[in-house]
Nucleic acid binder design. Sequence first.
DNA 1: TATTGTTATACTCTATAACTATA
DNA 2: TATAGTTATAGAGTATAACAATA
Lengths: 155, 155
Amino acid sequence: MAAELPKTGVAFLLVQLGKHAAMKFGARVGALDLTPPQVGMLRMIAAQPGLSQQALAGRLGMLPSKVVSFIDDLEGRGLVTRTRSSRDRRVYELTLTTEGTELLGEIQSVAAEHEADFCQALSAAEHAQLLDLLRRLADSHDLPPGIHPGYRDIR
Amino acid sequence: MAAELPKTGVAFLLVQLGKHAAMKFGARVGALDLTPPQVGMLRMIAAQPGLSQQALAGRLGMLPSKVVSFIDDLEGRGLVTRTRSSRDRRVYELTLTTEGTELLGEIQSVAAEHEADFCQALSAAEHAQLLDLLRRLADSHDLPPGIHPGYRDIR
DNA sequence: TATTGTTATACTCTATAACTATA
DNA sequence: TATAGTTATAGAGTATAACAATA
């Protein structure tokens, strides 16, 4: 008498798997005393050294006030430095310290482990195939590579 | 001088696409004055009529206190009925009303539209291929079909 | 004593708005 | 006047704990 739950589609599976992947990645970087947003910040600063906090907030879709407290933490741990811009003394230019760069290296190997573990059930060919399909899907929705757009822009 | 962001892997793409899909689905069911958790509740009640609120909370990974307020809403709108169990008068047996069943039908067509729209960039064959790969991935992580496990059980 | 549903409380988190210093 | 960074405050949302009814 109890009906079955309807077959799961791609969209729902993406939500389910995405949440699961985010959770497991969070646990991994948690072992390095980092949150996923902080990882995103380190990555972004590495990619664009000298970035301002406002720009960082804009790129990552987070509130400037939140950037402050996260950077406070990262700076206090010697991973990031704030230096006043000489052109506009209101802004801080963010850069990674040597330790920050080293930690980013660890993060990348953690991410690689995460990727391998998560896709363990797939063959190398299948993994590559899945990657291709997901990239095309992401492209079709204008999702920028490597960035979490917040929930703000709904299109 | 500015380095590139590293190539995006499957795991990260799943997070990105999952968030995007969840957001868009939320907007669609929002037009029916429903939240995604409420949709999950309607689906679950349809699949297992007579379910108790506790059982529902357990299945969906949400707090019992939250189930109360959501069911309050759904009952007030004539979509769900609470009837005292004759065997154990502490529990309410949840069932869909005729209207609730009708609305669930609408939800399913909305979900179908969502699926088609979201995968628009893929051919039918690619869509099927992606579905297969994602299902196998979900299976390998013991993600139950059609259910959002909360963030509770991390394994 | 344990459990279902419910309500109330406390807590966290987020977003908004003020404040300073520079421009 | 406007903007970067910061701080403080208010609001939403969450989880936790207390409560009445039934077992």
